[in-house]
């Protein structure tokens, strides 16, 4: 077990090192310095040189790379190029908790709705509820998140005026963003649960349990479901990643002051340190989530460890 965790951990660290290196050199390959923008084109060259010197941009690239690493290891992601006296750490500290709250609720909602939906579809295979949940799953997988967000916003906030469409001040403000974020994860989880449930229900141990006279409810809930949930656990890590990327659109549309909206803004501002800082933060976050779901899976399903070694 420990060996398995160490192996996964090392792979995660390697991934992050590669990501940081790629991000750093890509940012430095950008044409022009971050200070030569359309709106500031008439900066005198000596001012520009002094600005670059104060951010350390005049030193050789490799030296900058090393010093970036040094400050990273102290947990310092650097200072924004565009907003004076704002560090990337400040931005993440203020805006990430907002995203985490909305995303966390969305993760719970996706699991609480998605698993029972897939379960019902598998147990009542071929019946109306199976058809309905599979139609829903197909919609959730095919329709992009921004389309769903726009439609829900138009319907519930503009036409019916039941729910607020921007801000995040009361629980009612959470409903629309969470619904949009969890729409396609619900579909995916339902589809996954259904197909692995169908497989589990055909296994010998289920037949044995039935033959012993175990009630159908217990067979489904205890014997089959426990084994059918492993693919869902594998999906949990990427789910969090998916909610982070989905949140770009949802946070922008519903004016949620989260990290996703800030990332999109820093991309259009070409705020290089900010982009890099947030990318690295996302990367580390995703790697940790994947690691946790891998370890969970190894605990639940001992076969995983065996096939790894």
């Amino acid at each position: 077990m420990l060996k398995y965790i160490c192996k996964r951990l090392m792979a995660g660290v390697l991934t992050i090192i590669v990501l940081i290196t790629v991000a750093f050199f890509m940012m430095h390959a950008m044409p022009g310095s971050p200070f030569t923008q359309a709106d500031q084109r008439d900066i005198p060259p000596e001012v520009l040189a002094r600005m670059e010197a104060s951010y350390g941009l005049d030193r050789p690239v490799f030296e900058q790379y090393l010093s970036y690493w040094k400050s990273l290891l102290r947990g310092d992601l650097g200072v924004s190029f565009k907003q004076a006296n704002t560090s990337v750490n400040d931005i993440i500290e203020t805006h990430f908790p907002v995203s985490a709250r909305v995303g966390g609720v969305a993760v719970v909602v996706s699991l609480v709705i998605g698993i029972p939906l897939g379960l019902l579809a598998a147990v009542y295979r071929g019946k109306a509820i199976d058809m309905a949940s599979m139609v829903f799953a197909t919609i959730g997988i095919s329709v992009p998140v921004f389309v769903i967000s726009v439609l829900l916003m138009y319907l519930f906030a503009n036409v019916l005026q039941w729910l607020p469409s921007y801000g995040l001040t009361s629980w009612r403000h959470y409903i629309l963003p969470v619904a949009c974020l969890s729409f396609s994860p619900i579909a995916y989880i339902a589809r996954q649960t259904r197909s692995s449930m169908l497989e589990a229900l055909e296994q010998d141990y289920v037949r044995t349990a039935r033959a012993k006279g175990v009630s159908e409810l217990l067979v489904v809930a205890k014997h089959a479901l426990k084994n059918a949930l492993t693919p869902v656990i594998t999906y949990l890590g990427p789910l969090v990643a998916g909610l982070l990327t989905g949140s770009f659109v949802v946070e922008r549309l519903f004016s949620v002051p989260g990290i996703g909206r800030y990332f999109v803004q820093s991309v259009s501002d070409r705020d290089y340190t900010m982009i890099m800082g947030i990318v690295i933060f996302f990367g580390i976050f995703v790697v940790i989530c994947n690691l946790i779901s891998d370890i969970l899976l190894a605990i639940v399903d001992p076969r995983v460890k065996l096939s790894e070694s």
């Binding site: 991934t15 890509m26 990427p238 995703v286």
Partner: peptide
Amino acid sequence: MRIVDILSSLPSLLYIVLIMLL
């Protein structure tokens, strides 16, 4: 395959945004 693992363990949108900027 390790290279593939590293590429696929992060959401592709992060790379795509970086490449688009470049």
